[in-house]
Simulated assay, not measured.
Amino acid sequence: MRIFLIGFMGCGKSTFGRKLAAKMSYDFIDLDHLFESTAGTSIREYFNANGEEAFRQEESRILKSHDYPTNCVVATGGGAPCYFDNMDWINNNGVSVYIQMSPAALAQRLEKGKAKRPLLKDLNNAEIVDFIEHKLAERASYYEQAAITTDGMNLNIEELIAQVIYR
């Protein structure tokens, strides 16, 4: 079974994905790392050199063209489900799990590492919260298409495994 973790940057897709994959004895794939190894550059550098539209196109191509193992957990980029037909593709190729968190909780997690995030690097804390609120509103219709929604502040691996297996 392929499990695709979706949600806003900072919600824990990579951290939780590694734990979930280990618990299920599945492979773990981080789409951001896959992008960087395929593109031969960091996301930040690619984004700065080519712009967001080119980044989203390449991210979509990589998402859909990768040869995923039968059993894996995939941490997608925060915006990946929201472009082109990516969310439909995700739902047709595995079980999608939305890790949901409040804008304030996300901002607190993202503040320290914002320099690595092209969309946040020039924002102060209040602007980050506003940005997250706006982006979450834009992305809600995509994130809400997930087969499973889980609370990012109270993630429980055992409960999520049961939801995935018995959905």
Rank of each mutant, 00 (worst) to 15 (best):
Y26C: 01
Q163S: 15
T76A: 10
Y142F: 15
D88W: 04
V164T: 13
C82M: 06
M24D: 01
K13Y: 04
A146M: 03
K64C: 09
I161S: 06
N156D: 15
R109N: 11
I161Y: 05
G40E: 02
M1F: 06
A21L: 04
N125L: 12
N92A: 14
Q100R: 14
N92W: 00
M24C: 13
G17R: 10
L34W: 06
Y143F: 14
Q163R: 15
C82T: 04
A39P: 00
E45Q: 14
L123V: 03
K114D: 03
Y98I: 03
Q163A: 15
K64S: 05
A49N: 15
N124A: 10
L123S: 05
R2S: 02
P81R: 06
N86H: 06
E111W: 12
N125T: 08
Y83F: 15
L136Q: 14
D30S: 05
N125A: 05
E52R: 09
F55L: 08
T38E: 12
T150E: 12
R139H: 12
L34A: 11
A137C: 06
A22T: 10
N71M: 05
A80L: 13
S96C: 12
I43T: 09
I6R: 06
F4Q: 08
I29V: 15
K114E: 03
E53W: 03
E127R: 07
W89S: 06
E159A: 14
Q100V: 01
Q145C: 10
E52M: 09
L119M: 15
A105E: 14
L106F: 07
M101K: 10
N93T: 02
Q108T: 12
M9R: 11
A21N: 03
G12C: 12
N92D: 14
M101G: 00
T41M: 14
I90Q: 04
A21H: 02
N124Q: 13
I128R: 08
L119Y: 10
S14G: 08
A49Y: 02
F84Q: 04
N71D: 15
S102K: 11
R56M: 07
F35H: 01
A137N: 11
M1D: 03
D32K: 07
N156A: 07
L119K: 11
I6P: 02
A75T: 01
G78S: 04
S14Q: 08
I148T: 03
I99F: 05
Q145S: 08
E159S: 13
H66M: 01
T38R: 10
M9C: 02
E133N: 13
L31C: 04
G7N: 02
A54P: 00
N93D: 01
Y143P: 01
K64M: 13
F55C: 08
R2M: 04
S65E: 15
H33G: 00
A104N: 11
Y26G: 01
K64E: 07
